[in-house]
Design a protein around this nucleic acid. Structure first.
Lengths: 190, 190
DNA sequence: GTCTATAACTCGATAGAC
DNA sequence: GTCTATCGAGTTATAGAC
Protein backbone atom coordinates (compact mmCIF):
# COMPACT_ATOMS: atom_id res chain seq x y z
CA UNK A 1 0.00 0.00 0.00
CA UNK A 2 2.83 2.43 0.83
CA UNK A 3 4.41 1.70 -2.55
CA UNK A 4 1.09 2.14 -4.35
CA UNK A 5 0.46 5.41 -2.53
CA UNK A 6 3.85 6.77 -3.57
CA UNK A 7 3.52 5.81 -7.24
CA UNK A 8 -0.14 6.77 -7.73
CA UNK A 9 0.29 10.09 -5.91
CA UNK A 10 3.16 11.20 -8.11
CA UNK A 11 2.11 9.68 -11.46
CA UNK A 12 -1.67 9.51 -11.30
CA UNK A 13 -3.90 6.62 -12.35
CA UNK A 14 -3.08 6.74 -16.08
CA UNK A 15 0.65 7.34 -15.60
CA UNK A 16 1.28 4.70 -12.93
CA UNK A 17 2.42 1.16 -13.87
CA UNK A 18 1.84 -1.96 -11.80
CA UNK A 19 5.51 -2.74 -12.47
CA UNK A 20 6.55 0.56 -10.84
CA UNK A 21 4.51 -0.27 -7.75
CA UNK A 22 5.86 -3.82 -7.58
CA UNK A 23 9.43 -2.53 -7.91
CA UNK A 24 8.83 0.10 -5.25
CA UNK A 25 7.48 -2.60 -2.92
CA UNK A 26 10.30 -5.02 -3.74
CA UNK A 27 7.96 -7.73 -5.03
CA UNK A 28 6.80 -8.76 -8.52
CA UNK A 29 3.70 -7.96 -10.51
CA UNK A 30 2.06 -11.35 -9.97
CA UNK A 31 2.19 -11.00 -6.21
CA UNK A 32 0.84 -7.48 -6.43
CA UNK A 33 -2.16 -8.80 -8.37
CA UNK A 34 -2.52 -11.63 -5.86
CA UNK A 35 -2.91 -9.09 -3.06
CA UNK A 36 -5.04 -6.43 -4.74
CA UNK A 37 -6.75 -8.28 -7.63
CA UNK A 38 -6.36 -5.43 -10.19
CA UNK A 39 -5.13 -1.89 -10.75
CA UNK A 40 -8.55 -0.31 -10.34
CA UNK A 41 -9.13 -1.78 -6.88
CA UNK A 42 -5.66 -0.75 -5.72
CA UNK A 43 -6.15 2.74 -7.05
CA UNK A 44 -9.53 2.99 -5.35
CA UNK A 45 -7.99 2.13 -1.99
CA UNK A 46 -5.28 4.76 -2.37
CA UNK A 47 -7.79 7.36 -3.50
CA UNK A 48 -10.26 6.75 -0.69
CA UNK A 49 -7.46 6.81 1.85
CA UNK A 50 -6.24 10.15 0.46
CA UNK A 51 -9.71 11.69 0.77
CA UNK A 52 -10.33 10.16 4.19
CA UNK A 53 -7.30 11.93 5.62
CA UNK A 54 -8.72 15.35 4.86
CA UNK A 55 -12.49 15.46 4.70
CA UNK A 56 -13.51 14.23 8.18
CA UNK A 57 -10.81 16.44 9.63
CA UNK A 58 -12.12 19.53 7.79
CA UNK A 59 -15.67 18.71 8.89
CA UNK A 60 -14.58 18.62 12.52
CA UNK A 61 -13.04 22.08 12.32
CA UNK A 62 -16.02 23.52 10.41
CA UNK A 63 -18.47 22.10 12.92
CA UNK A 64 -16.43 22.92 16.02
CA UNK A 65 -17.89 25.46 18.41
CA UNK A 66 -14.94 27.83 18.08
CA UNK A 67 -15.47 31.59 17.63
CA UNK A 68 -15.20 32.67 13.99
CA UNK A 69 -11.69 34.13 13.97
CA UNK A 70 -10.28 31.25 15.99
CA UNK A 71 -11.94 28.78 13.66
CA UNK A 72 -10.32 30.46 10.65
CA UNK A 73 -6.94 30.50 12.40
CA UNK A 74 -7.20 26.85 13.39
CA UNK A 75 -8.35 25.71 9.97
CA UNK A 76 -5.68 27.50 7.96
CA UNK A 77 -2.83 26.70 10.35
CA UNK A 78 -3.63 23.01 10.65
CA UNK A 79 -4.69 22.52 7.04
CA UNK A 80 -1.44 24.01 5.75
CA UNK A 81 0.47 21.86 8.24
CA UNK A 82 -1.34 18.77 6.99
CA UNK A 83 -0.54 19.70 3.40
CA UNK A 84 3.13 20.27 4.18
CA UNK A 85 3.24 16.62 5.27
CA UNK A 86 1.20 15.45 2.23
CA UNK A 87 2.02 17.86 -0.58
CA UNK A 88 1.01 15.58 -3.46
CA UNK A 89 -2.50 14.80 -2.25
CA UNK A 90 -4.36 17.86 -3.61
CA UNK A 91 -3.19 17.64 -7.21
CA UNK A 92 -3.74 13.88 -7.18
CA UNK A 93 -7.28 14.11 -5.86
CA UNK A 94 -8.36 17.09 -7.98
CA UNK A 95 -6.95 15.44 -11.04
CA UNK A 96 -8.82 12.22 -10.70
CA UNK A 97 -12.06 13.98 -9.83
CA UNK A 98 -11.75 16.08 -12.97
CA UNK A 99 -10.85 13.14 -15.19
CA UNK A 100 -13.61 10.85 -14.01
CA UNK A 101 -16.35 12.90 -12.35
CA UNK A 102 -19.08 10.28 -12.88
CA UNK A 103 -16.99 7.45 -11.48
CA UNK A 104 -15.97 9.60 -8.55
CA UNK A 105 -19.51 10.55 -7.59
CA UNK A 106 -20.70 6.98 -8.05
CA UNK A 107 -17.97 5.05 -6.25
CA UNK A 108 -16.03 7.40 -3.99
CA UNK A 109 -18.65 9.77 -2.69
CA UNK A 110 -19.81 7.80 0.32
CA UNK A 111 -21.68 10.20 2.58
CA UNK A 112 -18.46 11.48 4.10
CA UNK A 113 -18.78 14.81 2.32
CA UNK A 114 -17.16 18.01 3.46
CA UNK A 115 -19.93 20.14 4.91
CA UNK A 116 -19.07 23.80 5.27
CA UNK A 117 -22.68 24.42 6.26
CA UNK A 118 -21.86 25.20 9.88
CA UNK A 119 -19.24 27.76 8.87
CA UNK A 120 -21.59 29.37 6.35
CA UNK A 121 -24.26 29.79 9.04
CA UNK A 122 -21.73 31.21 11.47
CA UNK A 123 -20.59 33.77 8.88
CA UNK A 124 -24.18 34.76 8.02
CA UNK A 125 -24.95 35.18 11.70
CA UNK A 126 -21.94 37.42 12.36
CA UNK A 127 -22.72 39.52 9.29
CA UNK A 128 -26.33 39.91 10.44
CA UNK A 129 -25.14 41.06 13.85
CA UNK A 130 -22.86 43.55 12.14
CA UNK A 131 -19.74 42.04 13.67
CA UNK A 132 -17.89 41.58 10.37
CA UNK A 133 -18.07 43.19 6.95
CA UNK A 134 -20.71 41.78 4.61
CA UNK A 135 -19.38 39.14 2.23
CA UNK A 136 -20.84 36.13 0.40
CA UNK A 137 -19.87 33.27 2.75
CA UNK A 138 -19.30 30.95 -0.21
CA UNK A 139 -16.73 33.34 -1.67
CA UNK A 140 -14.91 33.60 1.65
CA UNK A 141 -14.74 29.83 2.03
CA UNK A 142 -13.47 29.44 -1.53
CA UNK A 143 -10.86 32.11 -0.80
CA UNK A 144 -9.70 30.35 2.35
CA UNK A 145 -9.48 26.91 0.76
CA UNK A 146 -7.78 28.36 -2.32
CA UNK A 147 -5.06 30.06 -0.30
CA UNK A 148 -4.38 26.88 1.68
CA UNK A 149 -4.34 24.36 -1.15
CA UNK A 150 -3.14 26.19 -4.25
CA UNK A 151 0.49 26.77 -3.20
CA UNK A 152 0.96 23.00 -3.05
CA UNK A 153 -0.68 22.39 -6.41
CA UNK A 154 1.45 25.11 -7.96
CA UNK A 155 4.62 24.37 -6.02
CA UNK A 156 7.01 23.77 -8.98
CA UNK A 157 5.72 26.87 -10.76
CA UNK A 158 6.09 29.03 -7.64
CA UNK A 159 9.59 27.72 -6.97
CA UNK A 160 10.59 28.44 -10.54
CA UNK A 161 9.17 31.95 -10.72
CA UNK A 162 10.29 33.02 -7.24
CA UNK A 163 13.58 31.13 -7.45
CA UNK A 164 13.11 29.16 -4.23
CA UNK A 165 14.78 25.90 -3.26
CA UNK A 166 12.87 23.31 -1.23
CA UNK A 167 13.97 24.72 2.13
CA UNK A 168 12.96 28.25 1.16
CA UNK A 169 9.59 27.04 -0.12
CA UNK A 170 9.04 25.18 3.13
CA UNK A 171 9.81 28.34 5.08
CA UNK A 172 7.32 30.30 2.98
CA UNK A 173 4.61 27.73 3.77
CA UNK A 174 5.51 27.80 7.46
CA UNK A 175 4.98 31.56 7.32
CA UNK A 176 1.61 31.04 5.63
CA UNK A 177 0.30 29.06 8.59
CA UNK A 178 -0.37 32.38 10.33
CA UNK A 179 -0.30 34.81 7.37
CA UNK A 180 -3.35 33.38 5.62
CA UNK A 181 -5.61 33.73 8.64
CA UNK A 182 -4.28 37.24 9.23
CA UNK A 183 -5.00 38.13 5.62
CA UNK A 184 -8.58 36.87 5.82
CA UNK A 185 -9.32 38.44 9.18
CA UNK A 186 -7.93 41.81 8.12
CA UNK A 187 -10.28 41.68 5.17
CA UNK A 188 -13.51 40.99 7.07
CA UNK A 189 -12.86 42.65 10.44
CA UNK A 190 -14.71 45.91 10.94
CA UNK B 1 -4.99 20.96 -33.31
CA UNK B 2 -8.44 21.77 -31.91
CA UNK B 3 -9.09 18.08 -31.38
CA UNK B 4 -5.69 17.57 -29.75
CA UNK B 5 -6.28 20.53 -27.49
CA UNK B 6 -9.61 19.18 -26.34
CA UNK B 7 -8.36 15.66 -25.63
CA UNK B 8 -5.03 16.59 -24.01
CA UNK B 9 -6.61 19.29 -21.85
CA UNK B 10 -9.18 16.94 -20.39
CA UNK B 11 -7.17 13.71 -20.19
CA UNK B 12 -3.56 14.83 -19.83
CA UNK B 13 -0.53 13.47 -21.66
CA UNK B 14 -0.61 9.97 -20.12
CA UNK B 15 -4.38 9.59 -20.34
CA UNK B 16 -4.84 10.83 -23.91
CA UNK B 17 -4.85 8.40 -26.87
CA UNK B 18 -3.91 9.24 -30.42
CA UNK B 19 -7.06 7.33 -31.41
CA UNK B 20 -9.19 9.69 -29.28
CA UNK B 21 -7.68 12.70 -31.00
CA UNK B 22 -8.12 11.19 -34.46
CA UNK B 23 -11.76 10.37 -33.70
CA UNK B 24 -12.37 13.86 -32.35
CA UNK B 25 -10.87 15.31 -35.53
CA UNK B 26 -12.78 12.92 -37.79
CA UNK B 27 -9.62 11.41 -39.33
CA UNK B 28 -7.58 8.27 -38.60
CA UNK B 29 -4.43 7.65 -36.61
CA UNK B 30 -2.15 7.37 -39.64
CA UNK B 31 -3.12 10.78 -40.90
CA UNK B 32 -2.67 12.25 -37.45
CA UNK B 33 0.88 10.89 -37.38
CA UNK B 34 1.45 12.18 -40.88
CA UNK B 35 0.64 15.71 -39.75
CA UNK B 36 2.33 15.79 -36.33
CA UNK B 37 4.96 13.04 -36.55
CA UNK B 38 4.41 11.71 -33.00
CA UNK B 39 2.47 12.15 -29.79
CA UNK B 40 5.24 14.04 -28.01
CA UNK B 41 5.47 16.76 -30.66
CA UNK B 42 1.70 17.19 -30.75
CA UNK B 43 1.55 17.40 -26.99
CA UNK B 44 4.36 19.95 -26.93
CA UNK B 45 2.47 22.21 -29.32
CA UNK B 46 -0.69 22.07 -27.23
CA UNK B 47 1.25 22.68 -24.04
CA UNK B 48 3.22 25.66 -25.33
CA UNK B 49 0.08 27.18 -26.77
CA UNK B 50 -1.66 26.82 -23.40
CA UNK B 51 1.18 28.57 -21.57
CA UNK B 52 1.54 31.26 -24.23
CA UNK B 53 -2.05 32.37 -23.73
CA UNK B 54 -1.46 33.28 -20.10
CA UNK B 55 2.13 34.19 -19.29
CA UNK B 56 2.81 37.13 -21.63
CA UNK B 57 -0.58 38.50 -20.70
CA UNK B 58 0.16 38.29 -16.95
CA UNK B 59 3.53 39.94 -17.49
CA UNK B 60 1.90 42.87 -19.25
CA UNK B 61 -0.43 43.50 -16.34
CA UNK B 62 2.33 43.09 -13.74
CA UNK B 63 4.60 45.50 -15.59
CA UNK B 64 1.90 48.02 -16.50
CA UNK B 65 2.18 51.45 -14.94
CA UNK B 66 -1.19 51.20 -13.19
CA UNK B 67 -1.62 52.29 -9.54
CA UNK B 68 -1.53 49.32 -7.13
CA UNK B 69 -5.23 48.91 -6.44
CA UNK B 70 -6.16 49.30 -10.10
CA UNK B 71 -3.52 46.78 -11.05
CA UNK B 72 -4.98 44.26 -8.61
CA UNK B 73 -8.49 44.94 -9.88
CA UNK B 74 -7.45 44.59 -13.51
CA UNK B 75 -5.44 41.43 -12.93
CA UNK B 76 -8.11 39.55 -10.98
CA UNK B 77 -11.00 40.64 -13.18
CA UNK B 78 -9.33 39.81 -16.46
CA UNK B 79 -7.55 36.68 -15.24
CA UNK B 80 -10.79 35.19 -13.95
CA UNK B 81 -12.46 36.13 -17.23
CA UNK B 82 -9.70 34.40 -19.18
CA UNK B 83 -10.08 31.30 -17.01
CA UNK B 84 -13.85 31.21 -17.47
CA UNK B 85 -13.17 30.85 -21.19
CA UNK B 86 -10.37 28.27 -20.63
CA UNK B 87 -11.29 26.40 -17.47
CA UNK B 88 -9.22 23.27 -18.14
CA UNK B 89 -5.89 25.02 -18.74
CA UNK B 90 -4.69 25.43 -15.13
CA UNK B 91 -5.07 21.81 -14.03
CA UNK B 92 -3.58 20.63 -17.31
CA UNK B 93 -0.52 22.85 -17.04
CA UNK B 94 0.10 22.33 -13.33
CA UNK B 95 -0.24 18.60 -13.81
CA UNK B 96 2.32 18.28 -16.52
CA UNK B 97 4.77 20.56 -14.71
CA UNK B 98 4.47 18.41 -11.62
CA UNK B 99 4.80 15.13 -13.49
CA UNK B 100 7.80 16.11 -15.59
CA UNK B 101 9.57 19.06 -13.98
CA UNK B 102 12.93 18.41 -15.67
CA UNK B 103 11.42 18.09 -19.13
CA UNK B 104 9.36 21.20 -18.55
CA UNK B 105 12.31 23.36 -17.51
CA UNK B 106 14.45 22.00 -20.34
CA UNK B 107 12.03 22.19 -23.25
CA UNK B 108 9.18 24.53 -22.39
CA UNK B 109 10.82 27.24 -20.33
CA UNK B 110 11.89 29.55 -23.12
CA UNK B 111 12.62 32.92 -21.52
CA UNK B 112 8.97 33.84 -21.56
CA UNK B 113 8.69 33.47 -17.80
CA UNK B 114 6.13 35.19 -15.65
CA UNK B 115 7.92 38.00 -13.84
CA UNK B 116 6.06 39.39 -10.86
CA UNK B 117 9.15 41.46 -10.06
CA UNK B 118 7.52 44.78 -10.97
CA UNK B 119 4.52 44.08 -8.73
CA UNK B 120 6.77 43.02 -5.84
CA UNK B 121 8.71 46.29 -6.09
CA UNK B 122 5.51 48.30 -6.25
CA UNK B 123 4.21 46.58 -3.10
CA UNK B 124 7.49 47.13 -1.23
CA UNK B 125 7.47 50.77 -2.22
CA UNK B 126 3.89 51.36 -1.01
CA UNK B 127 4.61 49.57 2.26
CA UNK B 128 7.73 51.68 2.79
CA UNK B 129 5.71 54.85 2.21
CA UNK B 130 3.17 53.58 4.74
CA UNK B 131 0.34 53.60 2.18
CA UNK B 132 -0.72 49.99 2.81
CA UNK B 133 -0.37 47.54 5.66
CA UNK B 134 2.93 45.65 5.82
CA UNK B 135 2.80 42.21 4.20
CA UNK B 136 5.29 39.90 2.52
CA UNK B 137 4.72 40.72 -1.19
CA UNK B 138 5.34 37.10 -2.14
CA UNK B 139 2.52 35.95 0.13
CA UNK B 140 0.14 38.52 -1.32
CA UNK B 141 0.92 37.47 -4.87
CA UNK B 142 0.44 33.81 -3.99
CA UNK B 143 -2.87 34.71 -2.36
CA UNK B 144 -4.05 36.61 -5.43
CA UNK B 145 -3.08 33.89 -7.90
CA UNK B 146 -4.53 31.19 -5.64
CA UNK B 147 -7.91 32.88 -5.42
CA UNK B 148 -8.05 33.35 -9.20
CA UNK B 149 -6.92 29.90 -10.31
CA UNK B 150 -8.00 27.46 -7.61
CA UNK B 151 -11.77 27.65 -8.15
CA UNK B 152 -11.24 26.29 -11.68
CA UNK B 153 -8.90 23.54 -10.55
CA UNK B 154 -11.36 22.53 -7.86
CA UNK B 155 -14.52 23.15 -9.89
CA UNK B 156 -16.09 19.66 -9.65
CA UNK B 157 -15.40 19.51 -5.91
CA UNK B 158 -16.88 22.97 -5.33
CA UNK B 159 -19.95 22.17 -7.40
CA UNK B 160 -20.47 18.96 -5.48
CA UNK B 161 -20.02 20.43 -2.01
CA UNK B 162 -21.99 23.62 -2.67
CA UNK B 163 -24.57 21.87 -4.86
CA UNK B 164 -24.16 24.19 -7.84
CA UNK B 165 -25.05 23.46 -11.46
CA UNK B 166 -22.90 24.86 -14.26
CA UNK B 167 -24.90 28.06 -14.58
CA UNK B 168 -24.73 28.72 -10.85
CA UNK B 169 -21.01 28.05 -10.81
CA UNK B 170 -20.55 30.45 -13.69
CA UNK B 171 -22.47 33.10 -11.81
CA UNK B 172 -20.26 32.60 -8.74
CA UNK B 173 -17.16 33.12 -10.88
CA UNK B 174 -18.68 36.19 -12.48
CA UNK B 175 -19.18 37.57 -8.98
CA UNK B 176 -15.53 36.75 -8.13
CA UNK B 177 -14.29 39.06 -10.88
CA UNK B 178 -14.86 41.98 -8.51
CA UNK B 179 -15.04 40.18 -5.13
CA UNK B 180 -11.46 38.92 -5.17
CA UNK B 181 -9.95 42.36 -5.68
CA UNK B 182 -12.25 43.77 -3.01
CA UNK B 183 -11.17 41.04 -0.61
CA UNK B 184 -7.48 41.74 -1.20
CA UNK B 185 -7.79 45.51 -1.03
CA UNK B 186 -9.82 45.37 2.17
CA UNK B 187 -7.04 43.32 3.67
CA UNK B 188 -4.13 45.64 2.83
CA UNK B 189 -5.78 49.08 2.86
CA UNK B 190 -4.97 51.17 5.90
C1' DG C 1 2.56 -16.91 -0.56
C1' DT C 2 5.88 -16.19 -4.08
C1' DC C 3 7.85 -16.82 -8.23
C1' DT C 4 8.55 -17.39 -13.76
C1' DA C 5 6.40 -17.50 -17.97
C1' DT C 6 3.14 -16.08 -20.93
C1' DA C 7 -1.47 -14.97 -22.57
C1' DA C 8 -4.43 -11.14 -23.95
C1' DC C 9 -4.75 -6.65 -25.05
C1' DT C 10 -3.72 -1.59 -25.86
C1' DC C 11 -1.37 1.83 -28.12
C1' DG C 12 2.05 4.47 -30.82
C1' DA C 13 3.99 4.25 -35.11
C1' DT C 14 4.92 2.70 -39.95
C1' DA C 15 4.32 0.35 -44.60
C1' DG C 16 2.26 0.60 -48.65
C1' DA C 17 -1.88 0.97 -51.78
C1' DC C 18 -4.59 4.53 -53.86
C1' DG D 1 -2.95 13.61 -48.59
C1' DT D 2 -5.71 9.83 -46.98
C1' DC D 3 -6.71 5.38 -46.10
C1' DT D 4 -6.33 0.04 -44.40
C1' DA D 5 -3.56 -3.20 -42.39
C1' DT D 6 -0.17 -4.47 -39.39
C1' DC D 7 4.06 -4.42 -36.62
C1' DG D 8 6.29 -4.10 -32.24
C1' DA D 9 6.69 -2.39 -27.68
C1' DG D 10 4.65 -2.07 -23.38
C1' DT D 11 0.95 -3.27 -19.95
C1' DT D 12 -2.55 -5.66 -17.23
C1' DA D 13 -3.64 -9.90 -15.73
C1' DT D 14 -3.47 -15.02 -15.26
C1' DA D 15 -1.62 -19.99 -15.30
C1' DG D 16 0.85 -23.02 -13.04
C1' DA D 17 5.22 -24.69 -10.72
C1' DC D 18 7.26 -24.56 -6.18
Amino acid sequence: MAAARKVFLTKGMAGARMQDIADEAGINKALLHYYFRNKDKLFGMVFREAMAGFIPWANNVFASGLPLFEKIETFTREYIGLLMDNPYIPLFVLNEINRQPEKFIRKMWDGNQPTPGALIQQLESEIKKGLIKPIDPRQLIINMISMCIFPFVGKPMIQLVMKLNDAQFRQLMEQRKTEVAGFIIHSIRK
